[in-house]
Design a protein around this nucleic acid. Structure first.
Lengths: 333, 333
DNA sequence: ATGAAAGCGCTAACAT
DNA sequence: ATGTTAGCGCTTTCAT
């Protein structure tokens, strides 16, 4: 063992005067080692601060006792899922490794397939995929997805009730007397975004108000695109009195634009967001928005995964309720 | 290759009618492969959706192009560090794996040593340790620590200016005319907590006010312990008019206790926290607190690590400034 | 009770 | 240009 280097099982074996096989047995509590020998080996392990390499071990073993969470990036949504997953993993005895494309995901669509391929069968016993773009992966380990994109979803999934969340948000505006309600949409390739738009349309339909297509503008979940759309909406001859945005960040952009145009929120314009990100409460006025139980989604996904790994049955689709949080960006007309 | 299973390099070799060595060469862009052969191999790789196992590869290679972040758990502090690290890693081309003890850390002090041992020399080229309890690890890869515990720190580290942050917080109370200022401290084994207490003492000393030891109470960074201390402080015959808590969560606990005792914050009691966690703005009244640039700490730590991996020089200790955020939990006496 | 040896998937030095 | 082989650190038969 080089100075400063990591001790390997061979270093331990050498120093204890036994074979690596014996050390391995001690390590894994297998039978067939004399008490005295085991004791000596343990002592050397202690001295050397030896710890078996996760990599070598998992190359050899079928199971690793490690669960993987794959994320495209660390942003508010994925980190919140992570917290939920961490809470759920505690009692299970599994350990957690999170693997991130670190923003290279856009350049490589299908990152989840590649990552899963790189990790499964070796490093992890199962994986949680957060907002994957590919939804019909086959892996040699169980996989659960959280808030996947559109497409045929062949994997167990956890998502929020985007449809009813959107309906509730729009109905809130309706209840306040708004009739000209615009929407800034998300990305069409995201199942959640599509459902939020459906919710908007259904809420209006339920109220007997025809959807005016010119009031439905793209936002792409991008503040800059949302700004553009907000500007066009708010400078229309007959402008809307309320805007429902498919995400908080887009709602916030809308508030900004309204301000720039000299309007007061909620005085001249009511705005409802979606997600309930931390920022939504830090801004002024605090944003009325539809809360997504992101933490719980992470928790449930992990629980499902563990059941799957243990060979138990699971519900293939868990949909968690959303709820409206009324703050101060909405007001009666 | 079993159906549904992962393809290995052998499957690719077999199907392309070449040796595994050739496939490996194609995979790594090495010379010595005929264009036609390379083409065929690439096609098979495509067909099979083959991706080299990270584990097998890193067992063999010295370098893996992966950076590890080791955290005891996913909580607000560590996830914020993660976001910073993710932002910093983007331009570097490294990928990120986060390994978590998932709450088993308390039971196994020295988790960072074990984890580092399990990962270094194999899975990762370097590691960032978030709030490690052990500060003098030697690993075979570069390591940078974020906000480490007390002790001889032999590794490069990033932390916040806890001393001046605390001084600023206390001085703010002093400026508001407070004289009986209590403190609820953190954990003595944490360098940051010790410095916060020093800052409190220095600020008082600078103002010519002797520290009254009965006003310095333990909080252990634990809301429940903080509650106990707050209760004792606030029921003293000559109770303090202000409390400086070493963390927001303890400050919030103090506010709760004050309420239970029928006091108004900030009317009857001013409270200053430390950290500026998201909750501090969600509560009522929003908390005056000392902001820690956690995101930047993660970013800087990762940048340092990459330099270290590349064999460049780094500053061994980076201390980032804190700043006071005045909200509504403080008022002049 | 102990150890020798094979092999997990991969890369690289060394044949051919 | 291609293949053979050794070996990374570990676990697990299978001998002894």
């Amino acid at each position: 063992m080089e100075p400063g280097g990591r001790a390997t099982i061979r270093d331990v074996a050498l120093r204890a005067g036994v074979s690596v096989a014996t050390v391995s047995k001690v390590l894994n509590g297998r039978y067939g080692v004399a008490a005295a020998t085991a004791e000596r080996v343990k002592q050397v392990i202690e001295e050397l601060g030896y710890e078996a390499s996760l990599v070598a071990r998992s190359l050899r073993n079928v199971s690793t006792n490690v669960i993987g969470v794959l994320v495209a990036d660390f942003e508010p949504f994925s980190t919140e899922v992570l917290k939920g997953a961490a809470d759920a993993i505690r009692p299970t005895g599994f350990e957690l490794v999170v693997y991130s494309a670190a923003g290279h995901a856009e350049q490589h669509p299908g990152w989840e397939r590649r990552y899963l391929s790189r990790l499964s069968g070796t490093l992890v016993d199962g994986a949680v995929l957060v907002t994957p773009t590919v939804t019909d992966l086959e892996a040699r380990v169980p996989v659960v997805t959280v808030d996947p994109h559109t497409g045929p979803v062949s994997m167990p999934m956890v998502d929020a009730d985007n449809l009813n969340g959107a309906k509730t948000g729009v109905r809130h505006l309706l209840d306040l007397g708004h009739r000209r309600i615009a929407m800034i949409t998300g990305r069409n390739d995201l199942e959640s975004a599509v459902l939020r738009e459906h919710g908007y349309r259904e809420a209006l339909a339920d109220a007997g108000i025809p959807v005016q297509e010119e009031l439905v503008m793209p936002g792409g979940y991008h503040p800059s695109i949302a700004r553009e759309s907000a500007r066009r909406l708010l400078t229309m001859p007959e402008r809307p009195t309320a805007v429902f945005a498919a995400s908080d960040l887009m709602a916030l952009a809308t508030v900004d634009v309204a301000r720039e145009l000299g309007m007061d929120v909620p005085g001249d314009l009511s705005v409802v967001g979606f997600d309930d990100v931390p920022e939504s409460v830090r801004v002024s006025p605090p944003l009325t928005t539809v809360h997504q139980p992101i933490h719980d989604m992470g928790q449930r996904a992990l629980e499902m995964l563990v059941r799957l790994i243990r060979g138990e049955e699971v519900q293939t689709h868990v949909r968690l309720p959303t709820r409206l949080v009324v703050r101060q960006s909405t007001r009666a007309v």
